[in-house]
Amino acid sequence: MTVKEVVKALNLECLTGGEELDREVNGGYCGDLLSWVMSKAQSGNAWITIMSNINIVAVAVLTDVSCIILCEDVTPEEDCIQKAEEQGVVILKSSMSAFELANKIGNLI
């Protein structure tokens, strides 16, 4: 399933993302400690987190996740959105908890 299809199915808010929305979501990783995410998130995963500062963009680029999903209605800082746009990183947003999101995405893909 593509990022775009996940966005539609779960009614996620799309904060950034262009052609990257066509990437395949092959699984997911939940975590807020960046060095855990660096080591464990796999290329193509949806990364679910409440971390919303600019450093999540570099982590997403380097782990090559297909998207970042901010849960619990967390709002990223403006510089974070800007950097994500520059780097081609998809940032999505939802009011659901990490558990709910992971559960729903797990059922979708």
Binding site: L34, W36, M38, M51, N55
Partner: peptide
């Protein structure tokens, strides 16, 4: 508070 400080950075380097 920014998500750093898990004490996993150097172990990650060692691992990868």
């Amino acid at each position: 508070e920014m998500g750093f400080g898990a004490g996993m950075g150097l172990p990650n380097i060692k691992k990868y």
